[in-house]
Computed example of a mutant assay.
Amino acid sequence: MLLRGVKVVEFASYIAAPAAACMLGDWGADVIKVERSGGDAMRAAFADVKSELKGNPTFDLDNRGKRAIVLDISKPEGRDALARLAADADVFITNVRPAALKRAGLDYDSLRQANPRLVYSIVTGYGLDGPDAHKPGFDVTAFWARSGVGAMTVPKGMDPFMIRSGFGDHITALATVAAIMAGLFERERTGHGRLVATSLLGSGVYTMGSDLAVQLKFGRVASMRTRDQSINPIGNVFKSAEGRWFLVNPRGGGSSRDWIELCRILGREDLVEDERFKTGKARRANSPALIAELDRAFAELPFEEIARRFDEADMVWSPLQTPADVAADPQVAATALVQVEDGEGGAYPSPATPMRFPGADVAVRPRSPTLGEHTRQVLAELGYSAEAIEAMYAAGAAA
């Protein structure tokens, strides 16, 4: 595996930072998850659901294949054990707020004294600089609301809505892994590690970068519109005769070629010569009328026929799938899922990291660890004697 021999210490909770550590683990790194006595809050994600639903797929997604230990850093022995772990690590990942890390002597400047090769990754809500750097932040606040993602994805005149679970976190995790890998690459050349920082706010701004670049340059940006008011009426979502939604994305933003091809597919060549729709400018000006015409044409065709015609014409399109559709999609299974051990001799599908390494991918990943499952094992690897480990347990510094 690509990162075999790389040791990662994760002192984090929730999603963004643990997800980044999980990606490194998927690629072969040895990831040690350090939790406080209460455990990562995501362990309780399904605590209130119906009893017949067993397991915690949200936690498992971002923690599969890790080893887990419990240390209480409010006690000197627990804090020292975590520092010893970092002294022997290649990567340290945390999303604890910087002020708390500094108070505990677990900030980058403290840990690099014992391990100058350490790549220290910190994930924050709002970054390390600026007037609000100290504030706590989740993806719904820092990524979704503060960065503008939430406002820019709401059609004009409609109320804002909440983000789906982990949306901004997993985008931030991708950025975090990229930063860590750059730090490891630099270390190979210089012999020195470094601090790398990512934030939910920064990821949100970059995710909407195309629109925000326009805002920064011109002082304004077009708002989202409802489908009946689309600026490009043929780049839109439509429904088949059975009511199945699908999305059409014409090349070149609605070139005449794709417009003519779409009319041919629908058997509506008469629309090509309609003065209201002859040019791109005319189609934009008469968007509601054109969308109404297309709606009527698509409503006469079953979904499978639409799919056949689009594929034969090499159109860029896709069904608008529900989660159940995605779970049953053979293309998703082939490219975007991984099997995870269930701890009972079987395995179940789970989302894979989006980077694939043909010939080096692992078909099945180990399950996520139980709370403190590997505490004794990891402490022994650090050189603690059996007596010292028992003393740490007795003092509440380990569990």
Rank of each mutant, 00 (worst) to 15 (best):
V340S: 06
A17I: 08
A336E: 12
T198F: 10
K239E: 06
R309W: 07
P358T: 08
L320P: 00
E52F: 11
R79D: 00
R296H: 08
V205L: 15
K7V: 04
E305A: 02
A19H: 05
V140F: 15
E10W: 04
Y348Q: 10
A20S: 13
A47K: 14
P131D: 14
Q215V: 09
V205Q: 02
Q331C: 03
G38R: 14
P250V: 12
M42A: 15
L266G: 07
V6F: 01
S230V: 06
V8G: 10
K50Y: 04
A178Y: 12
D169E: 03
K66W: 01
R257M: 13
R308T: 15
G157R: 04
S368F: 06
L24F: 08
A388F: 01
M392D: 05
T190A: 08
D62T: 11
F310Q: 09
L200S: 10
K33D: 07
M392G: 08
L106S: 05
P302D: 12
S165R: 12
L212W: 04
S368K: 06
S256V: 12
Y108C: 15
D109V: 03
V338L: 10
E261W: 04
V9M: 02
P351R: 13
D258H: 12
I15H: 03
R187N: 10
V154H: 07
P160E: 10
D329R: 09
E304V: 09
V9S: 02
E387Q: 13
G183R: 06
D107Y: 09
A68H: 04
L262G: 08
E52S: 12
E188T: 09
A41C: 02
I231T: 13
A19T: 04
W27Q: 08
R264K: 10
A20E: 09
G267V: 07
S385H: 03
G150H: 01
A21F: 06
D342R: 11
P323D: 01
E269M: 14
A178F: 13
A179C: 11
K66Y: 00
Y14W: 14
V214S: 06
A21T: 04
A213T: 14
I93Q: 08
G219E: 02
F185R: 14
S74Y: 09
G191P: 09
L382K: 00
